[in-house]
């Protein structure tokens, strides 16, 4: 495969920035959760790209041919863990968003500020 350089890293950082943009400038709570999900996807992509080695094969063969290099297995294990953790946090965030909506009758973040000052 041809070398495509740092493009995956750039895409990962773009996803993080998009997520931060949603968190900073979007007023809807669900949209902000989507922002958190985007940051998380970006970080996951970053981790997997870290472990990639050109011409490598997947690190899942027990009897891999020794002449071929494997891509690093650790970042992949990390990413798996991170994906599962991400599901838990997203679910919790969304359930709190639903609760907030039930109590406040709105999802507008600028109206959900009883705790201030």
């Amino acid at each position: 495969m041809m070398h495509i350089g740092n493009l995956p890293f750039i895409v990962a950082m773009l996803l993080v920035i998009l997520g931060l943009y949603a968190l900073l400038f979007k007023r809807n709570l669900i949209k902000m959760v989507i922002g958190v999900s985007l940051v998380e996807t970006g970080v996951n992509l970053f981790l997997v790209t870290l472990g990639y080695r050109a011409e490598g094969i997947a690190p899942i063969y027990t009897h891999a041919p020794t002449a071929v290099s494997q891509v690093l297995p650790t970042p992949q294990a990390l990413t798996l863990t991170s994906i599962v953790i991400g599901l838990a946090t997203t679910a919790l965030l969304l359930s709190f968003a639903v609760l907030v909506y039930r109590h406040y009758g709105t999802l507008d973040v600028t109206k959900i500020k009883e705790l201030r000052g």
């Binding site: 968190l23 965030l93 709190f96 609760l99 109590h103 406040y104």
Partner: peptide, 16 residues
């Protein structure tokens, strides 16, 4: 009411 608000905000920041 306020517990839900606090929990959402804190969770978003902790996750980030």
């Amino acid at each position: 009411k306020r517990s839900s608000e606090a929990a959402f905000k804190v969770m978003a920041l902790y996750t980030l």
